[in-house]
Design a protein around this nucleic acid. Structure first.
Lengths: 349, 349
DNA sequence: TTTAGCACTCGCAATCTTAGAGTGCTAAAC
DNA sequence: GTTTAGCACTCTAAGATTGCGAGTGCTAAA
C-alpha cells in the first residue's frame, strides 16, 4: 500500500505545506504548479496530488477546494522536507540578555517561557521535574504546628524552597524538632535527592534496634518527606505562558475546542504526562495534532526540547501552537533556547 | 430628568430582568404582561417600557425586538428589587464539608474558590492580602547563597511560608547568619507583621551608634524583608478557578472579548485593584458590567464579599460571571461562603 | 508520462423572500 | 387622566435562489 513517494511528489508536498502555512488557504493545483519552481502543468500536479491523497498526506476539505496537508503530511514535512532557518544574531542576543542567572528556578522558568511565547507568538512552556536528578538537599528545618503536625521546610539546590506539612504520632517540642533537624542535616545535607532517598531507606532497614529513639523519629519524618513524593509522581513544576495568544488563531476559533484546551492547561496533568514522554528524546521533538493521544490537542502541535547539564536531562521546554505553524522558525527558536538555558544552568552551577 | 419610577414600572422591571436572566431573550410586551401577574394589557406595558427606556433602565437591541435590561437596569434590580433565595440546607452542608481547616491558607483559598466556581457554574476567586493585618511572624531563617545574596525564609502564622532572596553588602557565614536570625527571632517573632514593620523602623532610627555591628546588619536585612514589600503594594495572593466555565456563556462567545478577559486574569493586577476597592465595603458587593471601569469586564459582573475575623477584614472572595447571571442564587452563595470561611478561620485561630 | 481540454462539483456570497415578533401611535373606552 | 384595542410599520432570522469562481477528475492526444 504505502508506496514510495517520488522526488517530485515530495517536493510538491513541501511547497504545498509551506504555502498552506503561509496563507491558511487550501492550495490548488494551478497555484502549486506555479510556485513549485518545477516546469510542469497543473494537470501533472493534480496527478501527484491524487497520489499524495491516496497516501494520506493531503486531503481536500471538499470537492472543489485545493489540498490541505493532513497530520501525516505535516509529519513527513517536518521529518524530512523541512529546511530550517537559523536564528538571526539579534534574536540570539535578545535571548541571552533575558536569561538572568540569579533568581530561583521558578523565575528562570517563567522568563524563559515568556521569551518563547513572545518570540513565537504562541504559548510557551517550561517544565522542571521536581525530582530533577541533579538536585541536592541543602537544608532541613522543622517547625511544630498545632495538633501533631509539623511544618517541614526543605532548601534544595541554591535557591529553591519547598514546604510540606507532615503528620506525626505525637506532639514534639521545638527543641526536639531542632535536634531531629540537626541530625538529618548532618546525615543528609549536601547529598543529591536520589541519594537521600536511598540513605533513608537504608537507615530504616538497619535501625530496627539499638538506635536512639530520637533518630528513629527523625528518620521516619524524613521518610515522609522524601520517599512518598516519589510514588506520587505528580506535580512537577510547570510554567505556561502566553496561552491567550492561542485565542488569536482561526483554527482555534471554535469555543468548544478552546475550552477543552484551556481546561487541559489548568489540569496540567495531561500536558505533563505528554512532556514526560519527551524526557528521553534528544534534541527537538514535535507532536503534531492528536498524535499525542489527547483529543484536545487536535489542531495543535507542540515543539519541545530538553535542556540539560553535563549530558543529564534537567527538564523540558517548548511551545504550543496551531498545527499550522511556521516550523522552520519555531524549531530553531526552541532548539537554541534549550541550549542557552542548558548553558546558563551549567554556568550557575 | 430622572423622574420617579412608579411602583408598577418597578415591578415590571423586576419581572423583565428575571425573565431575561432566565431565557437570555429580549422580553416583549405581550409576554411581560402575561408574566407580570398584573392585570394589564400589553399596550400598557408598552407605555411603561417607553418610560423605563427613557430612564435608561432597558433598551431594545433593535426596533422589533423586546426589551433587555441595561447595566443601570441591573443595578436597580440588584439594589432594590431582588428577592434573594436562601440556600438549601444541603448546599450549606456541602460547603462546610469542603472547608478543611488544615492545610495552608493557599490550600484553603483554592478549595473555597473551587467551591464557588462549582456552585455557581462560573469563575470563583479568593484573595488573601499578603499583608493581612492579623498575620504574625513566626520564625525567620537565613541561608547563604553565592555572591552576596541571602535566602530568607519567613514562616508566617501557622503554616504559611514565604521566601525571598535579599542582597547584602558582603558575604556572610552560616554562623553569622544564624546569629542574626536568632537576634531577629528574639526581637520579632510572635508579633504581628504590622508591628514588626514598626519595630524595625524604630530600631533603625535608634541604633545609629553604640550598637553591635551584627545587630545592625540583622536589622538592615529585616528591613529588606518587611519594609520594602509594603511600598510595592503588588501581588497579594490570589486564586482564581473555573475560568474556563466562562467560555460556555453565549454573551462571551466573542473571542476577542474572551481573550481580553483571560489576559486580565493572567495579569491579575487589574482584578486585584478592583478587589482592593471591596476591602472597605461590608457584606456582599456587586460590580455590574464596566461599572468597574475595566472595559474587559464589559459583559461581566462580579459578586464579592469580604471575609473577616473579629471584625477585621482578612480578604475578599467572590465570583465572576456574565452580567446575565442568577443573582438571587449567586448572592446568597457568596454571602454564606464568606461567613463560613470567616467562621472557619476564627476557629482555627 | 505528460499535457490540454472539458464537463462537473462544490462552496461562498449576494440577493430576495417570507414569517414572526414587537413596536409606536392614535383614537376610543373606562 | 389612564388604559386599551387596533393597525401600520419595522426589523430580524431563516430559507431559498442564483451566479461565480475555483478546482477537480477524466479522457484523449502528444
Amino acid at each position: 500500500m504505502a508506496e514510495e513517494i517520488g522526488d517530485r511528489a515530495q517536493h510538491l508536498l513541501k511547497v504545498l505545506v509551506e504555502s498552506y502555512i503561509r496563507s491558511g488557504q487550501p492550495v490548488g493545483s494551478r497555484a502549486l504548479a506555479r510556485d513549485s519552481g518545477l516546469d510542469v502543468s497543473a494537470a501533472t500536479v493534480r496527478n501527484a496530488m491524487a497520489d499524495l491523497e491516496e497516501l494520506g498526506m493531503v486531503s481536500s476539505p471538499h470537492t472543489s477546494a485545493g489540498r490541505v496537508p493532513t497530520n501525516r503530511g505535516y509529519r513527513m514535512f517536518v521529518d524530512s522536507l523541512l529546511t530550517v532557518k537559523p536564528l538571526s544574531e539579534r534574536e540570539i542576543i535578545t535571548l541571552s540578555g533575558q536569561l538572568g542567572v540569579d533568581g530561583s528556578n521558578q523565575e528562570l522558568a517563567t522568563s524563559v517561557s515568556d521569551y518563547l511565547a513572545g518570540m513565537t507568538e504562541m504559548a510557551g512552556m517550561v517544565m522542571i521535574p521536581r525530582t530533577a536528578k541533579r538536585s541536592s538537599l541543602r537544608h532541613i528545618e522543622f517547625m511544630p504546628l498545632s495538633g501533631r503536625r509539623i511544618l517541614a521546610i526543605l532548601v534544595i539546590n541554591e535557591k529553591d524552597v519547598q514546604n510540606t506539612v507532615i503528620k506525626v504520632d505525637r506532639q514534639y517540642t521545638s527543641a526536639e524538632l531542632q535536634q531531629a533537624a540537626n541530625f538529618l542535616n548532618n546525615e543528609l545535607a549536601g547529598h543529591e535527592l536520589f541519594d537521600v532517598r536511598h540513605r533513608i531507606l537504608k537507615e530504616l532497614r538497619e535501625t530496627k534496634d539499638g538506635m536512639e529513639q530520637m533518630m528513629h523519629q527523625a528518620i521516619s519524618m524524613a521518610e515522609q518527606l522524601f520517599v512518598k513524593p516519589e510514588s506520587e509522581a505528580d506535580s512537577d513544576d510547570f510554567v505556561l505562558s502566553g496561552q491567550t495568544r492561542l485565542m488569536g488563531f482561526d483554527e482555534l476559533s471554535n469555543i468548544e475546542k478552546l475550552r477543552g484546551l484551556f481546561e487541559a492547561f489548568n489540569e496540567k496533568q495531561q500536558i505533563l504526562q505528554l512532556l514526560d514522554r519527551c524526557l528521553d528524546g534528544d534534541g527537538v521533538q514535535i507532536f503534531i495534532g492528536e498524535e499525542s493521544g489527547y483529543g484536545v490537542l487536535d489542531e495543535c502541535s507542540m515543539v519541545t526540547s530538553s535542556y540539560q547539564v553535563d549530558g543529564e536531562v534537567l527538564g523540558i521546554l517548548g511551545v504550543i501552537g496551531p498545527t499550522r505553524m511556521a516550523y522552520e522558525r519555531v524549531i530553531p527558536i526552541v532548539d537554541i533556547t534549550a541550549k542557552m538555558v542548558s548553558a546558563a544552568l551549567a554556568q550557575s552551577k
